[in-house]
């Protein structure tokens, strides 16, 4: 315990207490250091070092004839990305999909998270498990499942045509809609869990206080619940957005070869055409775009709701 001193304690007692507290803090520091070290090493080795190398690669030259990377310091790879409408289009599409997915996750996730946070049911843990359950199925497997549903002879079209509601099959497969649906389904649990844990810590009595002061449910939501849930909204939004920006399996499987997003693009450069410098540059553009938007969202929210 690091209760330093009380105001009523004589000066020497207070000083002694401070010394003891300082020493305890020293011990706590050591323990804390030991606790964070393994994870820090893992992150440093597994993330930072490759990033540094990758960044260095992105400044290298690519010699097409020999399919080789040549040591250089050039921004040609970045320039290539930003001058070619095709690549700009891929970036814009990726942003659009990630933002849309995040928005849908928030709209669908909030009510679900709210109910989960407020339920008194003894099946609450089971319900939470059900939310997490989809994560047991990897996104590649899931996307494959969606394919059987979305295809021109898939379950949805077969049903609708069987009922006579449509005569020609709907084109769902290999569209942006399919990709958005797919990523949303994968990301929703992250949003729900982020929101649920925060909403759970907002007292029900605070909502009731708002009601008793004359706030109808919508006003209560806008003035009390939403601002108080904001940390969860932010966490869930960031998580969903990052996952959406970096989605790989879903756009490849549901979007098809013509629907390019940043994740598959990076992979294609590395594995397909062996252009490591350009692949590295795309990686950094993707990372920077994700980071900048996340920081921007954070700042906007903070400016808006922090006093």
């Amino acid at each position: 315990m690091a209760i330093a001193s009380t105001t009523t304690a004589p000066a020497d007692t207070a000083a002694a207490a401070r010394l003891i507290a300082a020493e305890e803090r020293g011990g706590a520091r050591l323990t804390a250091a030991m606790l964070v070290t393994p994870a820090t090493i893992l992150v440093a080795v597994g993330l930072l070092i490759p990033l540094v190398i990758l960044f260095r690669y992105s400044l290298n030259e690519f010699v097409t004839q020999r399919k080789l990377m040549v040591e250089a310091v050039t921004i040609a790879n970045y320039a290539k990305f930003f001058t070619d409408p095709y690549y700009i289009n891929v970036l814009v599409r990726t942003l659009r999909v990630a933002v849309t997915v995040t928005a849908i996750c928030l709209v669908l996730g909030f009510p679900l998270a709210y109910v989960l946070a407020r339920t008194q049911s003894r099946f609450k843990n089971l319900l939470l498990m059900l939310v997490v359950l989809p994560l047991f199925v990897g996104s590649a497997v899931r996307a494959a499942g969606w394919m059987t549903l979305f295809g021109s002879k898939g379950a949805i079209n077969a049903t609708l045509m069987g009922l006579g509601l449509i005569s020609t099959p709907l084109e769902i497969m290999y569209t942006e809609t399919a990709v958005i649906i797919g990523i949303t389904a994968v990301n929703l649990p992250f949003m729900v869990l982020s929101l649920q844990s925060v909403i759970e810590n907002i007292g029900r009595d605070v909502e009731e206080a708002a009601f008793s002061l004359g706030a109808h449910p919508l006003a209560m939501f806008r003035r009390v619940l939403w601002p108080l849930a904001l940390p969860g909204v932010l966490a869930g939004t960031i998580l969903t957005f990052i996952l959406g920006m970096n989605a790989y399996a879903t756009p490849v499987l549901l979007g098809g070869p013509k629907f390019q997003m940043m994740g598959p693009l990076v992979y294609g450069q590395f594995a397909g055409v062996n252009n490591w410098p350009f692949g590295a540059a795309i990686s950094f553009i993707l990372m920077t775009a994700t980071l900048l938007l996340t920081i921007a969202a954070n700042l906007i929210v903070q400016r808006r709701y922090r006093r």
């Binding site: 009595d205 605070v206 009601f211 004359g214 009390v224 601002p227």
Partner: peptide, 22 residues
């Protein structure tokens, strides 16, 4: 009537102040 249509002022055991408001 729901609470917001009554004019009853309530003081809660936990006070239930809005933590984000002054």
């Amino acid at each position: 009537l729901p609470p917001w249509k009554r004019n009853a002022g309530m003081v809660f055991q936990s006070y239930a102040l809005f933590p984000h408001l002054s």
